[in-house]
Simulated scan of single mutants.
Amino acid sequence: MDNRHVKQTAEQFESLLIGQIMHSMRASSGGGWMGTGEDQAGSTMGDFAEQHLAQVMAQQGGFGLASLIQQGLTRASDPAPAISTGESTRTLALPSTLALK
């Protein structure tokens, strides 16, 4: 798994999450971002603004979820360390809480 693709995927996921949070905030306020009701055009513009802001936030670090996801995916794709018993080599899988650093 290419680290660049892992990073992009993690940022996209965080961007989607941030966008959903922002959309929920706007919907729960009962109106647009400016506190007034909005028409279809205003709603569409708000959706685009939320999406773009969420992407920028995720690229700039956002909530830090993208880096945690990237670390988890990178660890999960690393081969498990091998243990030599003299007779044969066996693979040891460690739980993520016991991962060697």
Rank of each mutant, 00 (worst) to 15 (best):
I21P: 00
Q8A: 15
D2H: 04
T74Q: 02
G61V: 09
T89D: 09
S28F: 13
T36V: 11
K7E: 08
F48C: 09
I83W: 05
R4F: 11
M22S: 04
Q59A: 13
Q40Y: 02
K101I: 05
H5W: 10
I18C: 04
G86C: 13
T44P: 06
K7L: 09
D2R: 02
M45D: 06
G35H: 06
D47E: 05
S43W: 06
W33C: 12
I18Q: 01
T85R: 08
A49L: 08
D39I: 06
I69P: 10
K101A: 12
H5L: 14
E38A: 10
T97D: 02
L53F: 06
A80D: 07
M1W: 09
G19T: 07
V6W: 03
P81W: 00
D2Q: 04
G32P: 03
T85P: 07
V56F: 03
H5N: 13
H52M: 13
F63V: 08
G46M: 02
Q12L: 15
A99W: 01
E38V: 12
L16G: 11
T9F: 09
E11N: 12
L16Y: 07
S28P: 02
A49W: 04
R26N: 02
K101R: 11
T36H: 10
P81M: 00
Q70K: 11
Q8D: 12
I83L: 10
I21Q: 01
L16K: 04
A99F: 01
D39K: 00
Q8S: 13
D39G: 09
V6I: 15
L65R: 04
G46T: 08
T9R: 07
G32N: 04
G72L: 12
L92T: 04
S29D: 10
L94C: 02
S15G: 12
A80N: 10
T91G: 09
S67M: 12
M57C: 09
E87W: 05
A80M: 05
E87T: 06
Q55A: 06
L17C: 07
R75G: 02
L17K: 03
S24A: 11
V56S: 03
G19Q: 13
Q71H: 12
A76M: 03
V6L: 14
S77A: 14
A80Y: 09
T44Q: 15
Q55H: 01
A93S: 01
T97H: 07
H23N: 08
A66G: 11
V6F: 06
L16W: 04
M45I: 14
G86R: 06
Q71W: 15
A82R: 02
G19Y: 07
M34T: 13
G19N: 06
G35R: 08
V6H: 05
Q71S: 11
T85E: 08
Q20W: 12
A80H: 13
A27F: 10
Q60S: 07
G64I: 03
V56Y: 02
S15N: 04
P81H: 00
E87C: 03
L16P: 00
F63Y: 10
D78R: 14
S43D: 14
T97P: 00
D78N: 08
Q71A: 15
E50A: 14
S77R: 01
A10R: 09
Q55C: 07
